[in-house]
Amino acid sequence: MKPRIRPARQGGALRYAQTALLIFLSLQGCSSDRERAAAPEDHTAVEWTELAWADYEQLNYTRALSRFDSAIAEDAAYGPAYTGRGWARLALGLSANDFMGAVSSFDDAAARQQVGSEVPAGRSAARLALGGAELANAILDAVNARNLAPQFVFAHRPSFDGKDLRLIEAFAKAGQADWAGALSVADQVEASGIQQGNPGTYVVGGAAYTTFEGAVLAHLNKLSTSHAG
């Protein structure tokens, strides 16, 4: 049974009142887990984070972000909430500022001893979204995530797995115009048969391409359609 919860954002006066009520109940010695759960405002950072991930899994990224924020408000040292905030910001991102915010959240998580693969995995995607100079860091993060978890599957979105980390790496290399590098990584997701310098192999999905770069882009496009995310 899901606990009842208070709204994620609230006014300062109400927040102080709730705090006073909690203190009062504690002094009376009559608080209990059931009673706290029943109160919509009363959650620990851990609880807020669990609730937020549930929202994330239901693709409700806005509420998930709000609840990750609440978790952090409860306990600013609680690292998993920052990881979640990064993923939520990534999902909601529509601008460079949004993705920089996601990167910042992942950095905050790492600074709070979040050493799992989810941090570099999410950060690699955020950095790929930023493009430009961040592409190199996206590659490093993707490789790092795969090294931390060779069989990586993102627990809160299982469709995002180790293949996606390789695609992030390949797509970032493509953004750097490193066509051979991109193909090398992409071929580990699905072999293309393309060989640089051998125009006879520049065939993707039955279509022949006149250049190596064109064939690589077609192969990446195919992988994006079939595997990305």
Binding site: L90, A91, A125, L128, A129, G131, L165, L217, N221, A228
Partner: peptide, 17 residues
């Protein structure tokens, strides 16, 4: 030739080549 590569972390973010 157009190639559109979806960001696996956010598929609605697309690199256009």
């Amino acid at each position: 030739q157009i190639a559109a590569l979806k960001n696996p972390g956010r598929v609605r973010t697309v690199q256009i080549f």
